[in-house]
């Protein structure tokens, strides 16, 4: 089993990219794809769910604890949120399972989900970005 990229790996790769002369980087390891480009370059291939490129106004919802991310209410139900979903601050955007416990994760902001950064049943670390929300009143409103 390939080990997934950690946040530390990503920041190391990004700083190596920053120091390099390359215009674009597209890297896929396990379930993570990392695609970055210098601002001068426009690239139509960069539109994947897992692509790390943050819209300027988006805020990140981070994991409040370590555990397995659960995107739905369980039992084969559809994911609670996806790109485009409107959420309220107290909306549950998913759960984190730790042993027998299941902890709901709240959006924390009113707005629109831009991107979901984790997959159902994936291990998420404490503080790991789960999804991005464009807060209501932001640029796209």
């Amino acid at each position: 089993m390939a080990q997934d990229l950690t946040q530390a790996d990503m920041s190391e790769i990004l700083s190596a990219f920053e120091r390099s002369d390359f215009a674009r980087l597209d890297l896929a390891i396990g379930s993570v794809r990392l695609a970055v480009s210098r601002s001068a370059v426009t690239d139509a291939s960069v539109n994947d769910e897992n692509v790390i490129d943050l819209p300027a106004d988006a805020v990140v919802v981070s994991a409040p604890l370590l555990g397995f991310f659960q995107s739905s209410d369980g039992g084969g139900a559809a994911a609670l949120v996806g790109p485009g979903s409107q959420v309220q601050a107290d909306s549950t955007i998913g759960f984190i399972r730790v042993m027998q416990k299941r902890v709901p994760v709240k959006a924390g902001k009113n707005g629109k989900v831009v991107r979901v950064l984790v997959e159902d049943r994936q291990l998420v670390e404490y503080g790991q970005p789960l999804l991005q929300i464009l807060p209501a009143g932001g640029a796209e409103e």
Partner: peptide, 17 residues
């Protein structure tokens, strides 16, 4: 909330294979 949290420690071990 970290090194003394049995559930977090065991879940992390399982989740990282």
């Amino acid at each position: 909330t970290s090194y003394l949290n049995v559930d977090a420690v065991v879940t992390a071990a399982v989740g990282t294979g």
